[in-house]
């Protein structure tokens, strides 16, 4: 199936999704003016992957700053992953942070709160 690539800018992260590997990768800051439009394709990719494939899904995230609409997008994705997880699907999140910036880890903890699937916050 199709892969996805959205090039990053100063205010939006690089997004790479690989259907074959079942990995969605995001890296950078996220404060675009049009979060919902920007992420529409990515959100659709996740929904399709979860619905059409049976393989595990892993999110590899190196996100620093997120504006409010980006937070909503990420939470929607995590909620959808949680629903599939409750039905027995293998899903996981690896959230990477720079050890010099503990604040990113604290925020990732907030996201993790309601997720029961494996959600690792990894310093590097």
């Amino acid at each position: 199936m199709k892969d996805l690539r959205i090039d990053g800018t100063i205010s939006s992260p690089t997004v790479i999704a690989s259907w074959q590997e079942g990995v969605l990768y995001m890296e950078g800051d996220s404060y675009p003016e049009n979060s919902y439009e920007l992420y529409a394709e990515m959100v659709a990719w996740v929904s399709q992957y979860l619905a059409q494939s049976t393989s595990p899904l892993t999110l590899e995230l190196s996100l620093l700053y997120l504006n409010t609409s980006s937070i909503k997008v990420m939470m929607d994705i995590f909620d959808e992953m949680e629903e599939y997880f409750q039905q027995g699907r293998q899903v996981s999140v690896n959230w990477y942070f720079d050890v010099d910036n503990e604040r990113v880890a604290e925020l990732a903890e907030e996201f993790k709160e309601d997720c029961h699937f494996p959600f690792q916050i990894i310093g590097k």
Binding site: Y65, L66, T68, I71, M75, E110, F111, E113
Partner: peptide, 9 residues
Amino acid sequence: KITRISDRY
């Protein structure tokens, strides 16, 4: 939750 996270940012 969104508000809380956004406030922290």
